[in-house]
């Protein structure tokens, strides 16, 4: 469902962020992307969600050549992909319910459909009773759950999480992992998770892609932390 063929990315300022990446991910997979800061993890994500265009090669997602997508077609394409960030990016003035509903409202879904789905994802992320709370009233872990609920509200085929546990303590990080695994299982969402957290990667073993200085240096189907000297 997702394939990169000889993909390179050079930014306008001349920085080579990715070199000749070849990669194939199937529907329903759960994949870690690890690597040191500046190794090109975020760039890889931006190529997938259409924010950046590959300098060379083809990024194919769900049969769509993402790099060749016309600007006007990007929004529609984006609906296939949910994104979660380290810093949650919730709207402080909206309640939990409103934050999640917002993602569906801007796509002009009917109110009834929105209410039903928001309750469903709130239940899925374990925040049934927090609908009326504001983000500031929640713990970091809970806020990330809201962000995840929002990201999956429109039922994207792929969920991309860029260091979703970066701001959380180990206990909370583990809970988020369990939640992502549940979403992967129950909603059938393909999940790509960028992380620095070696403990998580070793504990919840999954296919792991290792980036270093823009090169894909390892693709371990078995998972486990990879130390490259």
């Amino acid at each position: 469902m997702l394939e990169l063929k000889q993909v390179s990315k050079t930014y306008k300022n001349g920085v080579n962020a990715l070199y000749d990446i070849n990669l194939k991910i199937e529907q329903g997979e759960f994949v870690y992307i690890i690597g040191p800061t500046g190794s090109g993890k975020s760039t890889l994500i931006k190529l997938l969600d259409g924010e950046e265009i590959p300098t060379k090669g083809v990024v194919d997602v769900l049969g769509i050549n993402v790099g060749k997508l016309r600007h006007s077609k990007v929004p529609k394409y984006r609906r296939n992909i949910g994104v979660v960030f380290q810093d949650f990016r919730l709207l402080e003035r909206k309640t939990v319910f409103e934050n999640i509903a917002f993602a569906m409202e801007v796509l002009n879904e009917p109110a009834k459909v929105i209410r039903k789905r928001v309750r469903q994802v709130m239940n899925l992320v374990g925040l049934d009773d927090k609908g009326a709370a504001f983000p500031a009233e929640l713990s970091g872990g809970q806020q990330q759950r809201v962000a995840i609920a929002r990201a999956i509200a429109n039922k994207p085929k792929i969920l991309i999480a860029d260091e979703p546990t970066g701001n959380l303590d180990p206990g909370k990080s583990d809970e988020i992992m369990v939640l992502l695994e549940k979403i992967n299982r129950e909603e059938g969402t393909t999940i790509l998770m960028v992380t620095h957290d070696t403990v998580l990667v070793n504990k919840h073993r999954k296919r792991t892609l290792v980036l270093e200085a823009g090169h894909l240096v390892a693709d371990m189907t078995e998972g486990g932390y990879f130390s490259h000297e």
Partner: peptide
């Protein structure tokens, strides 16, 4: 956020 979830311009 609107852009991220695929809202049109």
């Amino acid at each position: 956020i609107m852009r991220a979830v695929g809202a049109s311009n």
